[in-house]
Amino acid sequence: MRFEPAPGRRGTAVYVTLRYVMPGGALGKAAAKYFGEEPSQQLDDDLRRFKQVIEVGEVIRSDGAPRGKQARQEFPQHPARPLSDEEPKEVMA
């Protein structure tokens, strides 16, 4: 991980370099991408949540996306309506 001043001193830019071997070759990569589990997608989720925690102090969650930014199982989402009493457990699982 690298932390560098952003252009014009507007904050800090965070760079992550990740080396990995994806099982299953091109097909495996396509499947992982479809399920939102491609490392670059997961990294995008992590970096956005990291920015939220640093700048706002928490991960932003909505009724539709109670786990916050997450490429995995992004759509269809929970409808944009309050979660029922049982749902939080299920949804957060």
Binding site: D44, K51, E55, I60, S62, K69, E74, F75
Partner: peptide
Amino acid sequence: GCGACSACQNELWSCCENTNPNAGV
């Protein structure tokens, strides 16, 4: 708005960088 990101600090509240969990879409 989150009030903290560069957009909010410049009063571009509807372009907040943090408050949309579906930012990818």
